[in-house]
Design a binder for these strands. Structure first.
Lengths: 135, 135
DNA sequence: CTAAGTCCTCGAGCTACTAGAGCTTCAAGC
DNA sequence: GCTTGAAGCTCTAGTAGCTCGAGGACTTAG
């Protein structure tokens, strides 16, 4: 274990990623396997910090694990064109926009339902009616 | 099996809910258990169609299974006040709005990243840079 | 009676973690 | 050197809400 190495808890504090999640990322191959102490405890190099932050940012932006994997692979090929990266990002943006549209529609429906409700009994409740409607 | 009863496939076609999903709703108690033929095949009454449509609408509006369960319970109490229903709907609307806000922020971040990218190599890629950034 | 279509159960798989049980290792203080 | 408490380890299972597949049984038209 070198001076600059971190134990899993330190890495967690440095990055804001939970200990269990870090182990999980190792298991699924997002984060390269850490070195081990004689007792079996993981120790991480500074490169792990960078990589984990990269992963964290990707996840915060909503990229799936598979996409993160691709982005990591790309990030390692410094000579390659960044075409694929841009495409991935654009596709993801498209997906986000679709979700936004869907959510907005949903927001409106809910608003309508709620505004229609004037209190009272279930049997006259507009919300229940709306949910039960055949169309 | 009465004239008006439906087999699971018919119910699926009538409601647009998949066969496996209908069975699943039965298993988890959202949809009351169907009657069975001598050979063990389910047959559904018209009331099942109504209930399933109700569930479908709820799910389309993004209510969780637990919330759907509550809404169903309420819907059955025609004399009860619709207060709880309205509260549930409002809470859900709030949750939807929060998601919307988060997604919009995400959309902007992605847009910024994508606009910053001018093509070229990974080593100069602004997207990768943004993802790798320490802050 | 047969064949095609539909249905049955049971178990596993999906995403991306998260929590807990039961045990071991590490490091600081005495 | 010893103790002790924090932190680490592995493994299993659980979360939400379905979805799919295997292997077999039922149903119904011809």
């Amino acid at each position: 274990m070198r001076q600059s190495d971190l134990r899993i808890g330190d890495l967690a504090r440095h990055t804001g990623v939970g200990v269990a999640t870090i182990r999980y990322y190792g298991d699924v191959g997002l984060l390269p396997e850490a070195g081990r102490s004689e007792g079996g405890q993981r120790h991480y190099r500074p490169s792990h910090v960078e990589r984990l932050m990269f992963i964290k940012h990707c996840r915060e932006l909503g990229f799936s694990q598979d996409n993160v994997r691709m982005l990591l692979t790309q990030a390692d090929q410094s000579d390659a064109s960044c075409e694929d990266v841009a495409r991935l990002a654009k596709e993801h943006l498209e997906a986000v926009r679709k979700k936004l549209t869907a959510l907005q529609a949903l927001e409106m429906s809910l608003e309508d339902m709620i505004h229609a409700c004037r209190g009272g009994r279930i049997q006259n409740c507009r919300i229940i009616e709306a949910l039960a409607a055949n169309e």
